[in-house]
Amino acid sequence: MTADKTDDDSYLDTSYWNGMIKMSLSRLFILRCLFEEPMHGYAITKRISELTSGCCAPTEGSLYPALNEFQKKGYVTSESRTVNGRERKTYKLTDRGEEAYRTGLEAWEETAEALLEAKKELELSG
């Protein structure tokens, strides 16, 4: 097999691209949810799933590390409460987190505009 040829057709598979998009956007959608209101982890995942029709809902294995990183860097705070005998940690966006959310939206807006323009060019050429 040469460097130019491969048996891997992952770039031809929509699920590959959806996975890449999901990984890239999940942190932005976490901030989006917390911009709406303080939430606990399960509510964040559920809300992201609603917002993206299931496309970008993070798994528990990716949600909590992202929330911990956001908290460590001052983008979110958390408060623990006991609800029905279970401890629930509710996360809240800080002013710094809101600034990060706005910055992320601006960056994605630029990217989305470029992608839409590329799609128009592709449609015109074909």
Results as ranks from 00 to 15, higher is better:
M1C: 04
T2R: 13
D4S: 13
K5I: 14
T6L: 05
D9K: 06
Y11V: 13
L12H: 09
W17K: 07
I21Q: 07
K22L: 11
L25K: 13
R27Y: 06
R27L: 03
I30D: 03
L31C: 05
L31M: 07
R32A: 08
R32E: 11
C33N: 08
F35S: 11
M39I: 11
H40I: 01
H40R: 06
Y42V: 13
A43M: 12
K46S: 12
K46E: 12
E50V: 07
A57Y: 03
T59N: 09
T59A: 12
E60H: 10
L63T: 02
Y64D: 00
F70R: 00
Q71A: 10
K73E: 13
T77W: 00
T77S: 02
S78P: 04
E79K: 10
R81C: 09
N84Q: 14
R86V: 10
R88N: 09
T90F: 15
Y91E: 00
E98T: 11
E98F: 11
A100C: 11
R102T: 01
G104V: 01
G104K: 01
A107W: 03
A107T: 10
W108D: 01
T111Q: 10
E113F: 06
L115K: 01
E117R: 09
K119A: 15
E123W: 08
S125P: 08
